[in-house]
Every structure is written in structure tokens, then in C-alpha cells.
Simulated scan of single mutants.
Amino acid sequence: MNIRNSYLTHLSRYIIGAAVLLFAAKQTATAQEKVMNMEEHDSKLYYFGLTFGANASAFKISNTNYFVQQDTFQVIQPKWGPGFHIGLMGSLRINKFIDLRFIPGVVFAEKGIRTVSRSGIVQDNKIESIYGQLPLQLKFKSDRIHNFRFYGLLGGRFDYDMASNARSRRSDEVLRIKPNDLSAEVGFGLEFIYPNFIFSPEIKISQGMMNNHFPDNTIPLSNAIEKINSRMITFSIQIQG
């Protein structure tokens, strides 16, 4: 009986000791999970980063009255095209929840226009652009949830198309596109905060506010189009320090 009691006493001590060790290990692991990375970053007045990613862009087309009367085109339809971009990012802290961002970058974009003639001939035309972009945005941030937060974006952007053919003298141009554009932007993103950097995927939608069409009455398609606005969907990856 004494041997049995001694065995039970030692077993109880082992069980209690193991339970204490497991509890302590769990508490330590939980504490490590809740370590706030880069806490000083939230109080920085400004910080910088790198952004890169992919985009899809298209035109919004408004036809002229001549389009109804003419007998050349049955359909004029915009098509989305792929692209990519890279840029630098500078952020200025306004308060705990709002940053002002400036992200100059270079964007390669492609837009398509499909035409169907009255005789049923389908033709796909591509218009390539190389934009120098100057976006200015307000970033509305949530509270940090440990090492994560989400945010929304609202802003405007100036674009200069370095591949614009508005002044081109070539006779085989499909359309002539003006180089300057202003766009409104809205979007959202996520921030994953690591010990040495912030990883941030982001999606934006932009709508051009200016008419990009440069009229040329020697181009049949140009006579059927009154107004062209740009549209773009952008997926970006940002690395911030």
C-alpha cells in the first residue's frame, strides 16, 4: 500500500509538473505571437517604399452621331489589355489613421479596340501606352490587429503617355490618342507587418476624366468616335521600410 501511495504521489507530481510546463510553453508561444513588429513605424512622420505589379486597362468609348449614319462600322467595342508597372512610394503621416501618399512610377499598358464592319469582318486593334504617372492619394488606415491592418485609398492621378501618337504623321494609325490625362482612383489594401519590412498587396480602380481622343478626319474610325476615357484596374505589391 505504501509503495502504491508513493507511486501515485510521484505520478501526480509528474502530471502537475508537465501541466505547468505545457501551460508555461503555451503562454510563451502566445506572447511571441502577439509581439508587435516595427512599433516605431506607426509614429514615423514619413517613410518610403517600392511598388510593382500588374494592370488591366481599356477605353470607354462614346460614339458620334456620324456612327449611326455611316456604313463602315457595325460595332466599335473596347477590349481590356494587360500591362505592368513599377514605382517609388513616399508617405507622409497626417495622423494615426491617415497618410498622404505620392507614388511616381512608370506604367506599360495595352488597350484594345474591336471593330466589326457592315460586311461582318472583325478586326482587333491594339494601342500601347507608356505612362509616366504621378498619383497623389489619401490612405485611410484601420487600427493595428497585432501585425496586420487594412486600409482604403482615395485620390487622383496625372498621366503622361510617352508613346502618344497625337502628333504622329503616319498614315496607318488606328486612332490618335492625346498624351495627358487626369484620373480619379479608389482602392483598398492589406498590410502584413514583419520585423524588418511591411508587405502590402493592394487593388485600385481608376477612371479617366479627360477625353483622350485626338480627332483626325482622315481616319475612318476617328470620325465615328466622339470621346475616349481611360480605365484601369491595378494590382500592386508594396514593400515598405
Rank of each mutant, 00 (worst) to 15 (best):
F140A: 12
G120C: 01
N37M: 01
L92N: 00
G87M: 07
V107M: 08
G83S: 11
I76K: 14
D42K: 07
L138Y: 12
I61C: 15
F140Q: 05
A29K: 06
S62N: 15
D71F: 05
T115C: 01
Q137S: 09
N95M: 08
L100S: 06
P78V: 05
F73K: 10
D99P: 01
N55A: 10
L50M: 08
F67Y: 15
A31T: 08
S117H: 03
Y47L: 01
T28M: 08
G156V: 14
G105N: 05
I145W: 09
N147M: 10
A31V: 00
R144W: 06
R93E: 02
I76Q: 13
G155Y: 03
P104G: 07
E110I: 03
F150R: 02
F148T: 03
S117D: 06
G53Q: 07
R144S: 09
K126A: 09
F73P: 10
F48W: 12
N147I: 04
R157T: 11
Y47D: 05
L154C: 14
E33D: 13
R101I: 08
Y151E: 14
L153S: 06
E40G: 05
F73D: 06
I130N: 10
F52I: 08
Q69F: 07
G81H: 09
L134M: 14
F108G: 03
I86W: 11
G156E: 01
I127A: 02
D124F: 04
V35Q: 14
D71C: 06
